[in-house]
Design a binder for these strands. Sequence first.
DNA 1: GCCGTTTTCGGCCCGACTGTTTTCAGTCG
Length: 578
Amino acid sequence: MARPNAEVEALLREYADLIAITGKGAFKQRAYERAARAIGGHPTDVATLDAKRLREIPGVGSSIADKVEEYLRTGRVAAVEERRAAVPPGVRALLDVPTLGPKKAMTLYRELGVSSVDDLSAALRDDRLAELKGFGPKARENIEHGIAVLRQSSGRIALDAALDVAEETVARLAEVAGCRRCAYAGSVRRMKETIGDIDILAAADDPEPVMAAFRALPLVDEVVLRGRTKTTVRTVDGLQLDLRVLGEDSWGAGMIYFTGSKAHNIRLREIALRKKLKLSEYGLFDARTGRKRAARGEEQVYRRLGLPWIPPTLREDRGEVAAAQRDELPELVTERDIRGDLHSHTDLTDGVAPLTEMVAEAARRGYHYFAVTDHAPELRMQRMTLEKARAQREQLRELAGRHGRLKLLHGTELNIDPAGEVDWPAEVLAEFEIRVASVHSHFELDRAAQTRRLVRACENPHVNIIGHPTTRKFGRRTGIDVDLDAVFAACARTGTALEINSHPNRLDLNDEHILRARAHGVRFAIDSDAHAPAHLAHLRFGVAQAQRGWLSPDEVINTWTLTRLRRFLRKPGGGRGS
DNA sequence: GCCGTTTTCGGCCCGACTGTTTTCAGTCG
């Protein structure tokens, strides 16, 4: 289903978790986690590597290489199966509850037989945790809150995972004889930040062969609904997929209907009604005679309604239909407009690839410029020092000019402390060409303190970009409590850009924040925050959120020429800046 | 389990925060 590297990464992570839960072997657990990360971020497909080449991946030795080979050969790993037998899968799922780690999960399982998040909820309700050592009132409250955060996202999955499933399914169905067209629609096509279910549309004269192929997909666990033109299945991961088959002559109307959003479709039907037309998934019809007026292409249907084609990322009933009527749809930023990435990490801190590989990938993507922004010393676990940063700058200089037009920028990701101060004194900050500043801790400060903190960071004459501004993480954290409008205003006033972090678990800022921020006249940076070469491709998710926030290229600083970008990086009061 | 100008053993990313365990374990980044 997913890329082999992603599958192997998931398997090794699971094994690491199982080691942690069963206790003993903290370093072994770390070794598996490290190998999982390295393989997940490895540029070559592990299925094409033999044991010797596998061992060349940092963190992969003979034992892990053997397990990877075993998995690729047989689809299973005996050692993993053994651990699975000892720990019910629901116990591992407890680790997804923030503030619950392996130790507490195991205690809950051993002492109370808790083996799922639902069990845990029940145990909390019956106050059975109170008897346990290490589960005081505050800890129980934290677990309760953790479950609530988790539940907010449960039933939904991250956009990247949904796109993998959607693209794979479309590719399979497109091969079926008699399938004339196939595409995914729904919230995946609108690139919503999380996805509840996946809608697939196919065009065929006879639906049944496509339906049969759909039901037979390896990822299908259960056929929920089975009709002539519509089938619903549930995957082994609990995700719901809907397939609808239409005639090819209804394709455009069908795509509009199944892409949604529902609210957008209602707007369109209202317009149709005023024009004495009727819009359904089969087409746009004359209300009186029933004659078909348009259906084959989305453009034709929109045109018949007196509208230009509206990009799926805008179809949320946020004024796009009215804007289309006035012919004032924004010119949306696209991935092609992006000239470079301004936030990335190497193995000097917590990335998994060396500088050379990150730069090579940036060059391969055709970028004009690329900023390397490893963590600064304040994030202690990264062990950054000024000497290391300067050595990296030298290395970057040596690489300059080796990749055609690609220009390399030496930057850093600073840590914003609770008072809004960042690492390093001004003169050191001035040595860097670009400075991202982000919150990495103290998520619990109150609203006034968080707001002061971020505004202060904006006012720092060396801070160019506020990284992942809300710090929310899908299924982990809701994000800090902060007066975003005050921060947006500070960004606009000080010439500080706001990041749209493209990591599929962050997407921070999200579409709604972007819409609000842009009203303040803020500039944005769409960044990957890549920790591996493959992560540079996450940019597509950030660009999609930018589109959902109605951004045009001019509002995004990394669509600009390097000359214009450099001018922006010299903030008012930023001194030499560079 | 991985790794090596500390090289085949003995380390391993380090520190803060939190709640509760009265001396520190567990979780997080």
